[in-house]
Computed example of a mutant assay.
Amino acid sequence: MTFSPSQPSGAASGAAPSHPGLAAHAARVRVLQPGLRVHADDAVDPVDATAHGQCAPGLHLVFLLEGGLDVAYGERRVLLATGAGGERERAGQACCVMVNVTEPERFTRRTRHGGYARRLSLCVSHDWLLQLQAASGTRMPSALESLMTGHLAMRSWQPSARAIALAERVLRPPACAPMLELLHQDSRLLDLLAEALAPLQAGEPAPEAPALNAALARRLRDLREFLGSAAADELSLDDIARHAGMNVNALQAHFRRAYGSTVFGFVRESRLQRARAALERDGISIKRAAALAGYGSPANFATAFGRRFGITPKDARHAAQR
């Protein structure tokens, strides 16, 4: 993959990367087995840049756990975000899209200085999927077959709690011998791929809902930012609806449609994210982190934390002590 950093108008294109962090993206690509590649990333972007490369045919899964991502497969642009920004957002939640490529295409990734992405990208060749289908002795599900035959066809997927935990363990594996670590990662990645493809066994994917109008989308973005702050932690649903200027039923329906989450689900996620940040950055006590996340019991907090992130609060706290 060739990287071309963003430059002022009139500057020569195709220049060598001005920061080693850009080339490091390509260096993190790993081949699990022929026809199956993975790219894991957990990094802050060092510069404003546009990276170009060649995108091989296959089914591409982009699994974003946190942050934002702006990529394009040919003319098919994909914007993902778990926070503010992006046209395909799942605020405070992991999100995933599958993009099918039937012929070589130009791949583009745009980065902004200070931007953050914790994500996995899987590329599965069509031959690999066809061989797997043949080995199963069954017919390929019609939904998967339809997706694989459409150039730049795309399908969104809302990952389950188990899928999120698998991805977290790939990105932040427990300490063990390098060979065992790779074995653990490969098994989890295959499990994750199975989770992503499972909904396609049931039938054709449902069409995506039309986009919200601009005014309502802005109101919901403003509300989401408010809900992500500590000021909203103790509010009732009626209080939040009044703040948003709509009734409770409309609020719940619009919020779920825009972000794939209930209002309180998003508040709960935001509090867990703040608690994790405080553990990893400041090394606060687990009791204080539990209170920050809205849990009266540290034990209940530890259970919810492990289910969400795939690690214990104690493990997160150790990051601040390194």
Score class of each variant (00 low, 15 high):
residue 11 A to H: 15
residue 26 A to K: 03
residue 284 I to S: 08
residue 171 L to R: 09
residue 249 N to F: 15
residue 275 A to F: 02
residue 65 L to G: 11
residue 78 V to R: 00
residue 170 V to E: 09
residue 143 A to P: 00
residue 98 M to E: 03
residue 289 A to M: 10
residue 250 A to I: 01
residue 227 L to R: 01
residue 40 A to I: 05
residue 246 M to I: 02
residue 7 Q to E: 12
residue 36 L to P: 05
residue 36 L to D: 01
residue 21 G to A: 08
residue 280 E to A: 11
residue 119 R to W: 01
residue 28 R to F: 05
residue 233 D to H: 12
residue 301 F to S: 10
residue 215 A to N: 07
residue 74 G to L: 09
residue 304 A to P: 08
residue 50 T to M: 12
residue 237 L to A: 07
residue 269 E to L: 13
residue 167 A to G: 05
residue 188 R to L: 14
residue 67 G to M: 10
residue 7 Q to P: 08
residue 129 L to I: 15
residue 140 M to P: 08
residue 109 R to M: 14
residue 72 A to I: 04
residue 97 V to D: 12
residue 238 D to P: 00
residue 151 H to R: 12
residue 59 L to M: 11
residue 18 S to Q: 06
residue 279 L to Q: 09
residue 45 D to C: 05
residue 131 Q to Y: 01
residue 57 P to K: 15
residue 24 A to P: 02
residue 204 E to P: 03
residue 312 T to A: 13
residue 264 F to I: 06
residue 144 L to V: 01
residue 257 R to M: 08
residue 89 E to I: 12
residue 69 L to Y: 00
residue 240 I to E: 01
residue 306 G to F: 08
residue 48 D to P: 00
residue 115 G to T: 07
residue 203 G to Q: 02
residue 287 K to V: 14
residue 276 R to K: 15
residue 226 F to V: 05
residue 232 A to D: 00
residue 247 N to G: 15
residue 58 G to Q: 08
residue 158 Q to R: 13
residue 84 A to W: 01
residue 295 Y to K: 05
residue 82 T to R: 07
residue 178 P to N: 02
residue 144 L to F: 08
residue 97 V to I: 04
residue 139 R to H: 08
residue 66 E to T: 01
residue 300 N to T: 08
residue 260 G to M: 00
residue 72 A to V: 05
residue 120 L to N: 06
residue 89 E to D: 02
residue 205 P to S: 07
residue 307 R to G: 05
residue 147 L to K: 09
residue 23 A to P: 00
residue 100 N to Q: 10
residue 210 P to A: 14
residue 212 L to W: 02
residue 139 R to P: 06
residue 128 W to S: 04
residue 38 V to D: 03
residue 133 Q to F: 01
residue 190 L to Y: 11
residue 10 G to P: 08
residue 210 P to R: 07
residue 201 Q to V: 00
residue 22 L to A: 03
residue 263 V to Q: 05
residue 75 E to R: 10
residue 303 T to H: 13
residue 296 G to E: 14
residue 46 P to S: 03
residue 291 A to N: 11
residue 67 G to C: 09
residue 119 R to I: 02
residue 168 E to C: 09
residue 162 R to C: 06
residue 195 E to P: 03
residue 264 F to P: 02
residue 200 L to R: 01
residue 233 D to E: 12
residue 175 A to L: 12
residue 296 G to C: 04
residue 180 L to E: 13
residue 110 R to C: 08
residue 182 L to G: 07
residue 136 S to T: 11
residue 11 A to S: 15
residue 83 G to Q: 13
residue 105 E to V: 04
residue 176 C to E: 13
residue 202 A to M: 03
residue 297 S to I: 05
residue 17 P to K: 06
residue 249 N to Y: 14
residue 109 R to W: 06
residue 22 L to W: 14
